[in-house]
């Protein structure tokens, strides 16, 4: 007879949350010294649109990645124009991790992001334009192809165009053919552009 030393589970313990879970309590916890408390506060703030400024403020100084991830997740759920503006500020920042996380949140907010997209795509900083194009990768918005076509027709920076062509290989239709061919003529000495444009053209093909 085997000795089954498995014991029956006891009543599962509840977690300890120090501050009350109302708006004021959660906002206070957002600055708690303990990272777990901050993370839970960030997450539990998801129903409160009033918390957006506090969350964004915290995001700028927060160094713990688990807390940052929770803040980004809550912002995604709250998703409105104010949040997009704060995220755009992150795109202009230097820290790669924060920029990448901002892109991921923006991908989930097609309606809130759409009004800002034309402006972002002509931002003076090429890096910001590249990041804006990266948002289009997964953005579920009907204008994605149109924006990408504008980028490859007008942007002078080869890396911005390169990022856009990559996405056109996935979402491109006949509407993109002329501009893809023009792009090849514009950068005849860039092997990557030629490769990527040909791939996109091949993918568009005829179905």
């Amino acid at each position: 007879m085997p000795i089954v030393k498995l014991v029956q589970a006891k009543t599962v313990e509840s977690d300890k949350r120090s501050h009350p879970r109302d708006l004021a309590g959660l906002m206070a916890s957002l600055d708690a010294p303990d990272a777990t408390a901050r993370r839970w506060a960030a997450r539990d703030l998801a129903p409160f649109t009033e918390a957006v400024p506090a969350l964004v403020k915290r995001l700028r100084i927060e160094t713990d990645t688990t807390v940052r991830e929770a803040i980004f997740m809550t912002l995604t759920e709250l998703g409105d124009a104010n949040i997009v503006q704060s995220l755009i500020k992150c795109l202009h920042g230097e820290e790669v991790e924060r920029r990448n996380a901002a892109i991921e949140v923006m991908k989930h907010l097609p309606d809130a992001v759409a009004p800002f997209m034309p402006g972002l795509l002509v931002d003076p900083a090429p890096n910001v334009r590249i990041l804006a194009v990266s948002v289009l990768e997964s953005l579920r918005h009907p204008d994605v192809e149109k924006w990408l076509i504008e980028v490859i027709s007008e942007d002078s920076q080869v890396n911005v165009c390169a990022t856009a062509v990559d996405i056109l290989a996935e979402v491109g239709t006949e509407a993109a053919i002329t501009q893809l061919e023009a792009l090849k003529r514009r950068f005849p000495d860039e092997p990557y552009i030629l490769f990527a444009a040909d791939l996109a053209l091949q993918r568009i093909g005829r179905t």
């Binding site: 990559d166 290989a169 092997p191 990557y192 490769f195 990527a196 791939l199 996109a200």
Partner: peptide, 12 residues
């Protein structure tokens, strides 16, 4: 690299 086209290009 997250871009499929870039991976294909480098691979080739």
């Amino acid at each position: 690299d997250d871009a499929a086209t870039v991976r294909m290009y480098l691979r080739s």
